[in-house]
Amino acid sequence: MTPSTSTAERQPPDKATLHCPECGHESRINGDWIIRVRADSLTYACPNCDTVIDSRRNREELAAGSCGSLGFAVEN
Rank of each mutant, 00 (worst) to 15 (best):
S41M: 04
E22H: 06
C20S: 02
S6P: 01
C46F: 05
S4Y: 14
T43A: 12
V52C: 09
G31A: 11
S4E: 09
C46T: 00
P12Y: 13
L18H: 09
E60I: 15
I35S: 03
W33T: 10
L18I: 07
W33K: 02
T7P: 01
P21I: 06
E61L: 15
R36V: 04
D54I: 11
E9K: 02
A73D: 07
S6C: 13
R38I: 08
T5W: 04
E26A: 03
S4D: 13
G65H: 04
D50S: 13
Q11E: 10
F72A: 02
A63D: 01
T2G: 12
R56L: 11
S41Y: 01
A64H: 12
E61Q: 14
A64R: 10
A63N: 14
E61P: 11
D50V: 12
A63T: 01
S4P: 05
G68N: 11
G24C: 07
S4Q: 09
N58D: 07
P47F: 02
E75Q: 13
A73I: 14
E60A: 12
H19W: 09
A64T: 12
V52M: 07
W33N: 00
P13V: 04
G71C: 01
T51E: 14
D32W: 14
R56Y: 10
I53M: 05
S27Y: 02
P3S: 11
H19I: 14
E75V: 06
T51P: 03
N30F: 01
I34H: 10
